[in-house]
């Protein structure tokens, strides 16, 4: 509302209201409220164990929330399976691309939505088309080194696998793209490529949920930020409202970081 960049008056594509998730005895998530808008990048920040994975699993239909509600385009929804989420245009890409290392690029791209040729019981999987589309879509996201749809996914680099998974989601009309630590396992060059792809998806009007613990990466592409600590939303702010140090301190638990610095100083002085 106080932000000039996004037209905030629109209905969010995805809205979570007071979502909590309890696993036998532990509160994994407590009262999380979030809004995800088209053409914006929401960065979910948090340390390991902060509840990011649980939140992703709720968004992508693997878990149902214990309490709280979810809305897609203003309509309340209950996801019973990942299929339900993907039917509503929510696509999740996991850290290692979530693809199949020993399948070909073309096969992997089309798992679950295989294109077919022919008719009746003799319908067959159109592998040539599958491979061509996969290669073309990766190319449109800047991967030019993959030219053969028969190549095994496991022979691609980490960034190429991420790109394959994102290309797949975009091609099948994802409206919300959830990226789970897409840059965590990548080198500097490949990570910057993935960040570029995030901006490309954003420009296409896709809502991107970028889950990361890398504050620098988040600040480069994010429009809106939410910080999770111990299953609670500790902060929620727009681009430019916090400095990198503020965010890092918050994620690490503020004083913990200051303590660490002091301790490190002492060690250095002693050495």
């Amino acid at each position: 509302m106080n932000q000039p960049t996004p037209p905030a008056a629109t209905t969010p594509i995805l809205r979570l209201a007071d979502v909590s998730k309890t696993f036998v005895g532990t509160n994994a998530l407590q009262d999380i409220s979030l809004e995800v808008h088209a053409g914006q990048v929401l960065c979910l920040l948090g340390d390991n164990g902060a509840g990011k994975s649980t939140l992703i699993k709720i968004l992508s239909g693997f878990h149902a929330p214990t309490t709280g509600t979810m809305e897609v385009d203003g309509e309340p929804v209950v996801f019973k399976s990942p299929r339900d989420a993907s039917d509503r245009g929510i696509a999740t890409v996991h850290q290692f691309g979530g693809t199949f290392p020993l399948m070909s690029v073309g096969r992997s791209f089309w798992v679950g939505v295989e294109p077919s040729k022919g008719r009746g019981p003799l319908k067959w999987f159109d592998k040539k088309f599958a491979g061509e589309v996969a290669v073309r879509e990766m190319r449109s996201l800047g991967i030019t080194r993959v030219t053969d749809g028969n190549r095994l996914v496991g022979s691609l680099s980490g960034g190429e696998r991420q790109t394959l998974a994102i290309a797949r989601a975009v091609y099948f009309g994802a409206k919300v793209l959830i990226l789970d630590e897409p840059t965590a396992a990548l080198g500097v060059k490949e990570a910057s490529h993935v960040l570029r792809i995030i901006m490309q998806a954003r420009a296409k009007g896709i809502a991107v949920v970028f889950v990361t613990h890398n504050v620098l990466h988040a600040m480069m592409v994010g429009d809106h930020f939410a910080v999770l600590i111990h299953g609670r939303k500790a902060d929620d702010f727009h681009k430019g409202e916090r400095t990198r140090e503020q965010i890092t301190d918050l994620m690490a638990g503020g004083e913990a970081m200051a303590e660490l610095e002091a301790e490190l100083d002492k060690l250095q002085a002693g050495a």
Binding site: S60, G98, F100, M103, S108, V111, G112, F125
Partner: peptide, 20 residues
């Protein structure tokens, strides 16, 4: 056939296959 693709996918990564 697509079923063959499913078989390969399930064997490759059951969680991703279900997610698909």
């Amino acid at each position: 056939t697509k079923y063959g693709n499913w078989v390969l996918a399930v064997g490759g990564d059951p969680v991703s296959a279900r997610a698909c």
